[in-house]
């Protein structure tokens, strides 16, 4: 006897069938104009996130953990990770404005100056990193005070 292909829960199958039907109804309309471009964006967004963005930041994080670990300061990781991730997050979300790729349209449409975004992002990054460095310095000082010198 050949092994039977397992089907799974009928509730799940019905739910997914309904979901696919609705997705297909909207999907044919979504793909009506430029099906290739839209499909590329739809699938590309998922692939770019899962296979490029996520591995990149995971590898960067692991490098920081390993690097500081090798130096014997694994507990410093957060002081690097938090400001770097927050700054990177702002860059990711506001990349068109910060990088200046929409400068001309932005100025012409809104009457606003596009010049401040890069400077403001850099300032926020500086404040986040500076605050993190300050907290680390305070922590180190406190640790030194609590541990009196070993020998005189």
């Amino acid at each position: 006897m050949r092994p039977r292909i397992p089907v799974g829960s009928p509730f799940q199958l019905l739910l997914l069938a309904a979901s696919f039907a609705l997705a297909a109804y909207a999907g044919v309309r979504l793909l009506a104009d430029d099906w290739f471009g839209v499909a590329l964006w739809f699938v590309g967004a998922a692939l770019l996130h899962d296979l490029v963005l996520l591995p990149l930041y995971a590898v960067a994080d692991r490098a920081v953990v390993r690097g500081l670990g090798a130096a014997g300061h694994r507990e410093w990781v957060l002081y690097v990770r938090v400001p770097a991730a927050l700054s990177g997050l702002l860059l990711l979300v506001w990349f068109p404005l910060i990088s200046g790729t929409v400068d001309r349209r932005y100025r012409s449409a809104t009457g606003l100056s596009p010049d401040g975004f890069l400077a403001r992002w850099l300032l926020i990054t500086a404040v986040l990193s500076g605050a993190s460095a300050l907290l680390l310095a305070l922590r180190l000082r406190r640790a030194r005070k609590r541990r009196p010198p070993v020998a005189h």
């Binding site: 979504l30 104009d33 471009g37 349209r105």
Partner: peptide, 22 residues
Amino acid sequence: QLDYVFPGSFYPLHFYGAWVFF
């Protein structure tokens, strides 16, 4: 951010895309 690089007009893309996603 007025960065209209997506493949088509924003209204249909964001509207139909929302229904597929939902």
